[in-house]
Design a binder for these strands. Sequence first.
RNA 1: GGAGAUAUAGCUCAGCUGGGAGAGCAUCUGCUUGACGUGUAGAGGGUCGUAGGUUCGAGUCCUAUUGUCUCCACCA
Length: 887
Amino acid sequence: MKELEKNYNPSQIEEKLYQKWLDHKYFHADAARGKKEGRKPFTVMMPPPNVTGQLHMGHAVDNTMQDILIRYKRMQGYEALWQPGTDHAAISTEVKVIDKLKSEGIDKQDLGRDGFLERCWDWKREYENRIVKQLYKLGSSADWDRMRFTMDEGCSDAVLEVFVKLYEKGYIYKGSRIINWCPVCRTSISDAEVVHEEQNGFFWHINYPVVGEEGCFVEIATTRPETMLGDTAVAVNPEDPRYQKLIGKTLELPLTGRQIPVIADEYVDKEFGTGCVKITPAHDPNDFEVGRRHGLEEICIMHDDARIDCPGSKYDGMERYEARKAIVEDLEKMGLLVKVVPHAHNVGIHDRCKTTVEPMIKPQWFVKMEEMAQPAIQALQSGELKFVPESFGKTYLHWLEGIRDWCISRQLWWGHRIPAYYCQDCGEILVAKNMPDTCTKCGGSHFRRDEDTLDTWFSSALWPFSTLGWPENTKELEYFYPTDVLVTGYDIIFFWVVRMVFSGLEQTGKTPFHTVLIHGLVRDSQGRKMSKSLGNGIDPLEVIDKYGADALRMTLMTGNAPGNDMRFYWERVENSRNFANKIWNASRFIMMNMGNGPVEEAPLNRLTMADKWILSKVNSLAKDMTENMDKYELGIGLQKVYDFVWEEFCDWYIEMVKARLWDEKNETRKAALWTLKTVLIQALKLLHPYMPFITEEIFCNLQDEEESIMVSSWPVFKQEWSFAREEREVETIKEAVRAIRNVRTAMNVPPSRKAKVYVVSEDQKMLDIFAHSKVFFAMLGFASQVCLQQDKAGIDDDAVSAVISGATLYMPFAELVDIAKERDRLVKEKERLEKELARASGMLSNERFVAKAPESKINEEKEKQEKYRQMMAQVEVRLAQLERKQS
RNA sequence: GGAGAUAUAGCUCAGCUGGGAGAGCAUCUGCUUGACGUGUAGAGGGUCGUAGGUUCGAGUCCUAUUGUCUCCACCA
């Protein structure tokens, strides 16, 4: 048997073991094999990290949870597929490549579309590997042989297929609508990519003259005066008495001289501002709606880079904020600027580049959402789709119920190019997977393909089935789809989960997964989000280097409930590291005692009470763990193995068993060794999904029969390992040991001072329990001898006592004990018992309790009451003795 | 404005279907016993945000209220 190092050193073994797993292809799932061997599939889709990304704590939590589920199911005998891949991350990658080009003095336009895309692919090849290697370090048991990329051939084909199908169904349309425009990235962005930030700005109050009524004005207030160049109306609330007579009149728009009407629309809030709103349909989403309702002209006054587009005017070509300044100055000169009021308001910012977005009307492609949202809503209501924790289902519903059409076109080059072809002869739009030969309308053969690409989420929405070969009906798709659990943070429910669900339902008729397991964010120790700008991020790789992947994984899973945020503390990592070291040393101890020979199988009837107790404990732990795993309560599961290993197994069982191990002639030595090894292996298996590396290392050192713990079988509850009586008996022993330790500490007795321990009970069965346990007292270092008797014969009156349920323990070290102190202690104990008795009798004398509570609960209370009565009697006797002694 | 989450020991958090308040860290006190000081034995510390209600019984369920956080929508 190999000798282990004194301290666990993760860095030495993690890489070696991961390579071993890869070499043995343990991560690989196979549909044909699974089918042939009659296994059930279990599938998890890895949320594809951005190719340009670096591993952060979010990935670490997300992937740890998935790995735990996959390893658990794999051990349970499922054909467990964890499908990995990466995302092309359109904007993010394009921006980075552009930056890199800039540093080389190259402009995107100079390279041309193909040249630029080549640079993007170079970037992808260079960085994809980085994030994948980082996921290796976590211990992720994903099926890397099936690695996919959202822009690889298969996924791209799925994208085209879906686009064409949705177009033909009328769910995809092209239209001019107001969208969020990023003047720096020069592309439209979705609502979800816009973040709102409060900024201190101003409210400019401006007078618009009423046509034909000299000296008569309408005062409007705006935060963006430059947009007035595009005003096509002023609106008031139809119910507003102040402005009734204005409705229908015509105003002259200052600076342009254009004539615009005053209209009435519910949208206007009477209480806000002046109650008169300038309407700029081309540059404000609300105004756009108003404009469409009233058939107003939509005048676009800005170029794509946010310079003013107003030919013939002095503002033409000005940058938007420059124009704002000029316009305000001019209005002031004209005497039309009424006042300027400081005003804090929210400004939309592009989350990637932080530029203030400009609402613009642009021809864009949209997905009609109304029909597709319905089945997705129903999936949740029918229970076909479930969120853990459930409350996130409300977030999901809320979003779907208020869903708007999805703008899917992006003015980027890196991404899936929209498969729409414009006939150069007649202008007809043809949508097809490949460029058509002839125009269906005019028979022409010259086409221009749409320049735009699709929103990144369009392809990720198809991830659960595109990766399995859809639209082909592959054996993988048939076997592994629909998948089982999707693990993700609550921050991308809208972006991704919703879109996967409606896409899956629309394309395959099935929800792509039955459960969405939501986790929270990892925050810093002060509760702040980890972010680049704050510089407060903790690099998971640094944690792994210092403490090992297992410690990181354990830290992220401890004391954490689904959906809740957690804070990162280095102290917690240390605790995890300490736990790893604890198991390491327990294993080391066991192996030292095993010697070189094999551990013989011990028949159950040769086991001692302690052996049966720990076996029974690990047995019910297996059941408990399985239940918690199935409920996705990963934090609770971990807590349970932790407590078992550290407290029950190390602090109690190993200590109980030492004396037997050291005595080569002891006839129960072999039983002890067998139990130690067996229980340890069970515990290692239960822990393996959480801490794959250390459990594998110990497992392989401990036994020769199996080559890896990750393909060993998950422990199941066995009736023959269930020993209720022994569990109770050992609990009694533990109670006794604790009682004695407490008394001795309370009495300030040094551990080196040994004393006799008398166990007194009228109940012979009770004494029998202790008959087997003399060895514990000796081993625990404070009993020179243990005497069992039914009465107090031979025990000095001033012996110190400890009362436990069913027995009283005495230690005759009279000379060490201060009688007054002992009396105080007993008085305290008496008070405690009185409280307990009051509680029990309070319940039992309550007629309604007795009438309504379940029988088992009543009996439980009666037993407790009886137990406390007995203890109380003992305490009273002891007190009386002391009184006599003192007087 | 809409929705959701959360409030438990000094700190960070568990506490699953209601039935005697827990962990880690921190603090204090012991322990050079042959796996581990990354250890071990013990102690102190909480009227479970507040007020009602349901119940024989509420940290747990309901209502209201307060604080904190998050998401969505955004007022020109």
